[in-house]
């Protein structure tokens, strides 16, 4: 952190420190020959199926079924128009967004203090609790589908947004706790102590000083809660019928009497990719860390 060259005593430093510093830059991890080709092929493999979906979403059904074209000959936005004007379709997006946002808010609100406790203190049963949380992140939704259905039916929450939001807490709360704990352990404890000496109460310290320090961690945790709730289908489909039905479940109903409406199905798929694609640039350096539960 301190700039040694401007310090008065800096001239007495051995000269080779700076020399080796510049030599370091010449060789970071060496890349094999032809790496651009490898990456190109890999990215092509990743993008082709997505391109194909996009391609289909811009075609008419006649073109999809009758001609095999690599790009849309009669470019049409009719499929998107269908989705964005029909409440049965776009309410699916609204429903998904409502429960996803609810879930993210709940998860973060309860996970923040807990992650702080795990990162700063030892207390009775802390390790067991931390492990138990992890098992819930790993729990197969299939195991919980039926009991959730019965639990939320019996308390009268079936087919509500809050039911899905609470159900997704099963894996998102542990996820948020683990990710936030990973970020919080990087903040030196001296900051807490100094704040307490300066007379901050715990609440004031946490909100005014600590939360801004781990702002990026909160962002990453929020992103991952959002994402995992957004991509999950089994629980959200089991817990809803009409009022809170997510877009992912509505998509499966494109089979009509005249067969599947491929164009609309593709357009709906593309629209579900949009939220992730919009923010992906901002979290690009944290994707690995988020998936690895705050470690790495």
């Amino acid at each position: 952190m301190t700039d040694t060259t401007s310090a008065p005593g800096a001239t007495s430093l051995p000269g080779d420190v700076t020399a080796s510093g510049s030599a370091v830059k010449t060789r970071k991890f060496p890349r094999p020959k032809g790496s651009a080709i490898v990456m190109g092929l890999y990215l092509l493999f990743l993008l082709l199926p997505i391109y194909w979906l996009l391609n289909m979403s811009l075609k008419t059904n006649t073109e999809i079924l009758n001609e095999f074209t690599l790009w849309p000959r009669n470019l049409t936005l009719a499929n998107y128009a269908t989705i964005l004007t029909d409440p049965a379709w776009y309410m699916g997006y609204v429903n998904s967004l409502i429960y996803v946002v609810m879930n993210t808010a709940i998860s973060l609100a309860v996970a923040l203090p807990a992650a702080y406790a795990f990162s700063r203190y030892h207390f009775m049963g802390d390790k067991h609790l931390f492990f138990w949380l992890l098992t819930n992140r790993m729990a197969p939704p299939a195991v919980f589908a039926l009991p959730f259905f019965q639990l939320y039916s019996s308390v009268g929450l079936f087919d509500t947004h809050i039911a899905v939001a609470l159900a997704h807490c099963l894996f998102n709360v542990p996820l948020a706790v683990w990710i936030l704990e990973g970020f919080m352990r990087g903040v030196p404890k001296e900051i807490d102590e100094t704040a307490y000496i300066d007379g901050y109460s715990f609440g004031a310290f946490f909100v005014k000083i600590f939360m801004p320090l781990i702002a990026s961690g909160i962002g990453v945790a929020a992103f991952f809660c959002f994402m995992f709730s957004w991509v999950e289908l089994l629980l959200s489909r089991t817990l809803t019928t009409v009022d809170a039905k997510p877009i992912a479940a509505i998509m499966t109903r494109t089979q009509g009497a005249s067969g599947i409406d491929w164009g609309v199905l593709a357009a709906a798929g593309i629209l579900t990719i949009v939220p992730g694609a919009l923010v992906i640039y901002f979290v690009r350096n944290y994707i690995a860390k988020g998936f690895a539960l705050g470690r790495v």
Binding site: Y42, W52, M251, G269
Partner: peptide, 26 residues
Amino acid sequence: ASFCLVLMSLPLLIPWNVVGTIWQIF
């Protein structure tokens, strides 16, 4: 590096049933 990171992350963020649908169609 950023370019690759962004494009590589894309499949990770697609809803799982859409992943299924993509390959069903593909």
